[in-house]
Amino acid sequence: MQDFFAILLGTALVNNVVLVKFLGLCPFMGVSRKVDAAIGMGFATTFVLTLAAASGWAVERAILVPLDLEFLRILSFILVIAAIVQFTETVMRKISPQLYRALGIFLPLITTNCAVLGVALLNIQEGHGFAQSVLYGFGSALGFTLVLVIFAGLREQMAQLSVPPSFAGAPIAFIAAGLLSMGFMGFAGLVPN
């Protein structure tokens, strides 16, 4: 139990996917202009990442290892994760239109982005079991959501400041992201590896 808590904390804060591992930077920059959109994106990513961690583990154990095909990991992971996300989108649209409206538009955007694929691959690299993999995926996604929402809040505030013209827009956002990343370095050592 304590182990699981450590994984969750470790992935969400200490080894944050975005600010420490630098994965998933495109949605981090792209969808962080409004807090609402950031929350939607965060939940959709949480969903996909958890699913991807589970399916990645299943593909590795059921297909790649028995057939000695580990070199096809990236290809098969992309294939399976993309298909499962698409499948979920289709089903969600039928079963729960409200949920579809909230998350659906983000789902095709994150089908195997670098964070999703990266976490699935890291799981295999570190030899996690099934429950551990899922938790690792979920924790990473929580960290992603947290950072995305924080950053969106920062950018909403920054939009009202008078930024020097040469820094306006993307440059100041990058600088803020760098500072936030340094802030997250402060979590290092919180969980013993």
Binding site: I63, L69, L72, L79, A83, F87, T90
Partner: peptide
């Protein structure tokens, strides 16, 4: 051969599912 076949099968299976 196993690589080609298993990936084809995987793709076809997922395609059918979708």
């Amino acid at each position: 051969l196993t690589a080609a076949l298993s990936m084809t099968a995987l793709g076809a299976g997922l395609g059918a599912m979708l």
